[in-house]
Each structure stands twice: as C-alpha cells, then as structure tokens.
Computed example of a mutant assay.
Amino acid sequence: MVIDAKTKLYGLLAHPCQHSMSPLMHNTAFAHHQLNSTYLAFDVLPENIEAALAGMRAMGVAGVNLSMPLKTAVLPYLDDIEPAAKLIGAVNTIKNDHGRLTGYNTDGLGLLQALAPEFEPKGAQIAILGAGGAAKSVAVHCALAGVKKITIFNRHIGPGSRADALQQLLATGTEAEVEVYALDNTAQLKQTLGQVALLVNATNLGMGTYEGQSPLPTPAVFSKDIIVFDMIYAPRETALLKSARAAGLTRVHNGIGMLIQQGAAAFKIWTGEEMPISLVKEKLELN
C-alpha cells in the first residue's frame, strides 16, 4: 500500500511503546483487506494525554489503542464511553467519529474470543489470579457474559485493596457471585481449582524479572477438566503453563490469543471488518 493524502491514520498511545506488536497486527490486517490505512506507535507520557487527544481530534486520527496508565488517564477527555468500559473504569480503544471520541475496552472480550467455543461463560465458575486492570477487564466481561461465580486470589486483600474494590465493583455492577482470598491461601486455592472451569493468571508472575516464577504453589493441584489461561505471552510458556501441562492438562493457553483477539475487536470497531486471525498469528509468531 502506498501512503497518500487519503490514508487513514491509526495508532498506539503508550509509554514505552517500542515493544508493541500492535503495529504489526493492524498493518497486516489493513493490507489483507486492502484498506488505505496505516498504524503507528506514539510514545505518550500520562501528563501529555490531553494534548495527544486534542491532536487526535485536530488531525483526524481515526482511532487509537492505549496501554496503562493511559487507559485510565484518558477517561476525562472522552465524549462517550461504552458501558463495559465505564464499569471497568479503563479504555484500551478509542474511535474518532468526526471529532467525537468514544472509548471501549476490548481486553476481556479478547480473552472470551480466544477461548471460544472451548469455554462457555454462561453459568460457569472461574478463578482469577490478580486484581489489577487486566483482571478487572476479564472479570467484568466474564460477569456480563453470564459467568455465575468469580473467585479472586490476590497478594493483598481486605479494605482498601484492589481485590476488595474489584469485589465491590462486581457486586454492584453485575449479577456474578464474587469471593476474594489471599493468593497464599493454599487450602482455598486447592479447593477452588477443583471446582472452576477456568483459571486465569492476570498477575505479572512469570514474566520480566519474575520469569520462571508461578503464582501457584508447586506442585499445583488442578481438576482434570480445567482450562488454564495465562495472560502473559512473553515468554510463550510460563512456569504456570508448564506445571499445568505436567499435571496432564491439555487445555492450556498463553496470552497471544487474547492479544490478537482484543486487537481484532478494536479493528472491527474501527473498520467494520474482521481481522485475519490466522495470518496475524503467523506474523506474530515470526517476530
């Protein structure tokens, strides 16, 4: 595709942004659909987000994705926020409709799409490790999709903790039953992992400086039918996933599918087109 005066501009607002796979994902999808559009990454500090959105409006940037902490910092400067994103209190996607900016949150949708049709949320029980922004998006979207019970394990619990805030949010904004326990409560972990259909790791244990660490005690005890989903995609196989495979589980997933599917949801919001999932996955696996 040749960039010309009619090319639509999309992008990522993040700090830092150099590591992002989003430009490769979206530019692959644009090329596949022969859309005259391009996607760039912009390093934006939180204190500059208001100016960045003013520039987005002024220059007609068609849409952007955002990473933390911009997902929350951007909220006061949007014209509309879709209901799930409003409940979550964070957006990762913005669409510019003739200067009117609408925020969406596709993170939790990405997980549900990555697991479809393997996981049926309606009436299910799930466990989430962690209570930060990623956990909140997954919990809210799962609850809105009909998950019956969500058990949250977090390092810090009790009044003032993120786990307590998430429990209150889900209790008031959804119909899901919610329980919260400390991550080091091994007896409760063992009991819960024998009951739930899905375990989601939304902590950073397993990546970066925590690579090789697992959020679960070793050896972890899983039910034979549980799906284990680690939102981490670098490394592709975390200590948690290795322990799940060692326990004989076959429905074990890293975060690459969620990464692609949350991007696909944003792509659909912007263009009305479906992202070519297989092609994008092939490109990401080569990089």
Rank of each mutant, 00 (worst) to 15 (best):
T72E: 15
N92M: 06
Y104H: 11
I150R: 01
K95H: 12
A52F: 13
T151H: 00
K122H: 08
L115G: 05
P83N: 08
R155Y: 02
P117R: 00
L166Q: 00
D80W: 13
P83G: 06
A54M: 13
N92T: 11
G63T: 13
I152H: 01
A73I: 10
G60V: 12
N92V: 11
L166W: 00
D80N: 15
G146T: 03
T93A: 14
N96A: 05
N154I: 04
Q168A: 05
L45N: 14
P117I: 01
A145S: 12
K86R: 15
A139T: 06
P121D: 04
A90T: 10
H98S: 14
L115E: 04
G55W: 11
G60S: 09
G108F: 07
R57S: 11
G103I: 10
G146H: 03
A134N: 03
K95Y: 09
G146A: 01
N96V: 06
I128T: 01
A85K: 06
I49G: 08
I152V: 10
A52H: 12
N92R: 04
G99R: 10
N105T: 12
Y104T: 08
K148H: 13
L66Q: 12
G133L: 03
T93C: 15
I128F: 02
Y104Q: 03
E120S: 05
I49T: 13
Q168S: 05
A51V: 13
G130V: 01
L111G: 09
G63N: 06
Q168T: 04
G108A: 05
A41I: 13
A134M: 02
M59P: 10
Q113I: 06
H141Y: 03
L101F: 06
P69A: 11
L70T: 12
Q125G: 00
K149M: 01
D107F: 05
G146Q: 04
K136M: 00
L53H: 07
E82M: 13
A134T: 08
R155T: 09
T151E: 01
M68P: 10
G55L: 12
A62V: 09
L66H: 11
K148Y: 06
I126R: 02
A62C: 08
A114S: 14
V140F: 03
A139L: 03
A145C: 04
L112I: 13
K149D: 04
V61S: 08
D107R: 07
D107I: 07
A143N: 07
G123S: 02
E47L: 09
A62R: 14
V91K: 02
A124T: 02
M68G: 10
G60T: 09
F153Y: 09
M56Q: 14
M56G: 09
L129C: 04
E120T: 11
I49F: 10
L87A: 15
G89P: 10
L87N: 13
G103W: 09
Q168P: 00
V140Q: 03
